[in-house]
Simulated scan of single mutants.
Amino acid sequence: MTTTERTKTNDALWMETAQETLSVASDAIRRVSERLTPNFLKALEILDDCAGKVITSGVGKSGIVARKIAATLTSTGCPSVFLHPSEAMHGDLGIVEPDDVVIALSNSGESEELLAILPALLARRVPLIAIVGNLQSTLARRAAVVIDSAIEREACPLNLAPTTSVIVQLALGDALAMTLHSKRGFGTEDYARNHPGGRLGRRLTLCVRDILAMNALPIPIVAPSASMMDALAEISAKCVGATIVANADRKILGILTDYDTRQAFQKFGADALKLTAEQIMNPHPKVILHPDQLAYEALRQMEDGSRQISVAPVVDSESVCVGMVRIHDFLRAGL
């Protein structure tokens, strides 16, 4: 067999191993889904009634999954923390309060570190939900509610490394979190409040006034009687690409953009210099924004249409101009 042939043979073997790993995991999740019992709904009810926080705990790979479940619960409106069993035995049990709920994860249900803290947890009379792969284990017997996470085998070729078992634990934790999420009516705006740094959060919380504050652009503004040269000078001085045309009370009468001035020169030639801002301006700007308007909504207004709007005025409830925003101001804000 040539080197090339051996490589192809090995590649096929590795691909088969990868596919087998994924197949074992997906089959295990499907089987767990099919054998869900009313215990899942009992666990859901306990979590929904929780007046305190949810505490997750586990050792090794189960501990890693427990951390992730705590993070998911917290981000979807259910305050949760991870408690390491070893640290719990040295003072961290103080985090457990009477109104809390504990979710303990273990494939065997006999993890020594986890079993060691059970008496202290039960003494606090907190409900204990166990996600466990052995229904006859000590953890299963001591728990108020048991969710079965048993698997036929690990995806590991030696059936030793925790692989399928932790994937099933994670899937069950996500199932609890997402079902609780739906039961409590946790909505998009709620999610955004917990994720202000993410793009979704910014899209649902940032307002136009926030964009104005980030950039603090000088407002280009001219009177309706201003000459073409004065308008061009204002546009150039303020570097926004347009100027507001407003009356003495700064109430907007129209907008005059670079595009409008080019159109005027194309139509009138040199005589365009004799025109006033009022004669050149667009008295009906396609987009006029408001300070309390969602920034993402404003961005969509500027982007939609046959011709993208690069700059737009911001006016208050009395049509007084309070600022100008450029489309790249929104993009720079991470929208």
Rank of each mutant, 00 (worst) to 15 (best):
G334I: 07
L128Q: 12
D11Q: 15
S236Y: 04
A18I: 13
I167Y: 12
L206F: 09
N215F: 09
A104D: 03
D148H: 02
K251S: 09
D48V: 13
D48N: 10
G133F: 03
A140H: 05
C321T: 15
A71V: 02
G91W: 00
T188C: 04
M281L: 06
D49F: 10
D210M: 04
L275C: 05
L118I: 15
L83D: 02
L118M: 15
T17D: 14
E5W: 05
G254W: 01
L47A: 05
L121D: 10
M228Y: 12
H328R: 06
V287G: 12
R153G: 03
P38K: 10
D329Y: 04
Q301A: 07
M229Y: 04
L180T: 05
I29W: 14
R250I: 01
A216E: 12
D230T: 13
A171S: 13
V315K: 07
P285D: 06
R35P: 00
I327P: 02
L139T: 07
L22M: 13
F330R: 00
S182K: 15
E97L: 15
A104S: 09
V102R: 00
I55A: 04
V322G: 01
A161P: 08
T17C: 07
P283C: 01
E113S: 13
E297Y: 00
A175V: 10
A312Q: 00
I167L: 14
T3M: 15
M1P: 11
I151C: 04
A70V: 02
S149N: 06
K286R: 15
N215A: 13
H284S: 11
Q279M: 13
G269R: 05
G91E: 00
I288M: 14
D92K: 04
K68D: 03
R300Q: 14
G187T: 15
P119V: 07
A216H: 11
E20H: 11
W14A: 11
T179D: 08
K251A: 12
F330P: 08
G94Q: 05
V245N: 01
S106T: 08
D329W: 01
A104N: 05
